[in-house]
Structure formats: structure tokens, C-alpha cells
Design a protein around this nucleic acid. Structure first.
Length: 229
DNA sequence: AACTTATGCAACCGCTGGCAT
DNA sequence: AATGCCAGCGGTTGCATAAGT
């Protein structure tokens, strides 16, 4: 999709839409030498672009293993759930969705999922409130009600571990101050997910973003994407 | 058919945190 | 401790295209 009309900044560096030739130069260079320094890379790659632009283009469009096209139901659900607990931490969300970039997820959220999530949380809130009335007696002033994560729950849409019995309607609620939620709530989340063994999707993502040439050519693809198809 | 408005998404911008000196 | 550089992140913009009138 053509978006921005090519133009130049004051340093003569090109801005706007990337051409196929530029893409090819960037891919060729990174494939051969890797991205050791984004600021210097365009100069060595023969590109009249700033390093930032090159980095963005590579990470969001050119790097291997990017999944293009429609989102699956599982991906949508995962994004909504993750967003509910991580907020606008798109890179953290993207780290748990193999093949999708933070930029892409962010765009998709704003164009497709935001409204749906708001509807869902409105429904959840009603359910939670009714549960709270029967199960909980403590409520912080100005606190919000939301469903807590079972720390052993695996949110991967590709997870083979489906033993979790927690459902979205289960009355497992906690009441928090919205402003305090991120640190406390996500501390356990991050720690927990880091401890998860066999977290192939995070691992694969990290391999993606730290692309180094001369690796065996994506030999992990088959295993990785077999979970997806 | 012509025009207007809404939508999708690639790319840009500015800020922040980590690291080296 | 202060400073500078860099990568990374998230918000925002701008434009092509689709949909509506």
C-alpha cells in the first residue's frame, strides 16, 4: 500500500514510502552483514535513509518470519487478553504473538479490536460486579474491578497446554487502583512468563528481532509454524 | 460519474532507558 | 555523577483506497 509521498529531510535523507529497490538493498545488506549499528547501516548499505527508518522497515516489513494477512480468532483473542493486562505495551504484546509486529498489532487494535474489547470489558464488568457482590467484601476507593489471571494460564493461542480451567466468566476477581495496576499486576506476569518453559513463541520472536546472518536458514520454521497451521 | 467521508496501515516523530565513557 | 549515543517504544500523521451519498 502506498502511503507517504517520498520526500527528503534537511540532511538529504529520503523519507516516505520505501521502493522495492531500497527494500532489496536493505535485505541484501542485513542478510550478509546483519544489523550491527542502525545509524551507520544505511550508509554502508547504500541507502539514503536514516537508521531509524531502516530499522523500522526491517522490523515491521522485511525481516523473516513475519506473518502477513488476516488475524485468526485465536490471535485476536490473545491480543485482547494481553492488552487487558499489559495495556498499550505493544512490544510486550507482540513478543507473545509470533510473526506479528508491535506496529501491526497496534494498528490492528485501533482499527478492529478496540471497540470489541470495550464491549467485552463492559460485559465482563457486569459479570464481575455481580460476582463481587456475592464473593467479595473489600473494595478500594475508586478501585476498578477486573478479572485476574491465573498465573499458570497459558495465553498462547498455539499452546498445547490447555489444562487451564479458568474461564472468562469465572468469578476470580480482584479490585485494584487502575493507576497502580501495571507494575504490580505485570510484575508477576512477566516473571511468570519468563519462567515458563518451552516458551517457543517468545524465543522465536527474540530470534527474529536479533537477526544474525549465517544462521542456519530458519531451520526452526517448521516447528514454529506447525503450531499455527 | 463525481464528490465526500471513513478506514487501514506504513512510516514518522519524539521520548525514554540502557550503556559506554 | 554527568554526558552523549543509540536502540527501542508508543503515539501520531499522512495518504491510498473503499464506501457512502
Amino acid at each position: 500500500m502506498m502511503v507517504r509521498t517520498p520526500s527528503s529531510d534537511k540532511n538529504g535523507l529520503k523519507k516516505g514510502t520505501w521502493t522495492p529497490e531500497e527494500d532489496q538493498k536493505l535485505v541484501d545488506y542485513i542478510t550478509r552483514y546483519g544489523h550491527w549499528n542502525w545509524r551507520l547501516l544505511p550508509k554502508f548499505a547504500g541507502l539514503a535513509r536514516c537508521g531509524k527508518s531502516c530499522r523500522l522497515r526491517w522490523l515491521n516489513y522485511l525481516r523473516p518470519n513475519l506473518k502477513r494477512g488476516n488475524y485468526s480468532e485465536e490471535e485476536e483473542e490473545t491480543i485482547i487478553k494481553l492488552h487487558r493486562h499489559l495495556g498499550n505495551r505493544w512490544s510486550a504484546i507482540a513478543a507473545r504473538i509470533p510473526g506479528r509486529t508491535d506496529n501491526e498489532i497496534k494498528n490492528y487494535w485501533h482499527t478492529n479490536l478496540k471497540k470489541r474489547s470495550e464491549q467485552d470489558s463492559a460485559t465482563d464488568s457486569q459479570v464481575s460486579n455481580s460476582c463481587e457482590q456475592s464473593l467479595t467484601t473489600t473494595t478500594e476507593p475508586s478501585g476498578n474491578t477486573f478479572q485476574s489471571f491465573n498465573s499458570t494460564q497459558d495465553y498462547s493461542p498455539f499452546s498445547q497446554n490447555s489444562s487451564s480451567s479458568i474461564t472468562s466468566t469465572e468469578c476470580n476477581t480482584v479490585t485494584i487502583n487502575e493507576n497502580l495496576a501495571p507494575q504490580d499486576e505485570f510484575a508477576f506476569w512477566d516473571a511468570d512468563t519468563d519462567l515458563m518453559t518451552g516458551n517457543f513463541w517468545l524465543e522465536s520472536y527474540m530470534r527474529d528481532i536479533s537477526y544474525v546472518p549465517n544462521e542456519p536458514e530458519y531451520s526452526f520454521d517448521a516447528e514454529l509454524w506447525s503450531h499455527d497451521n
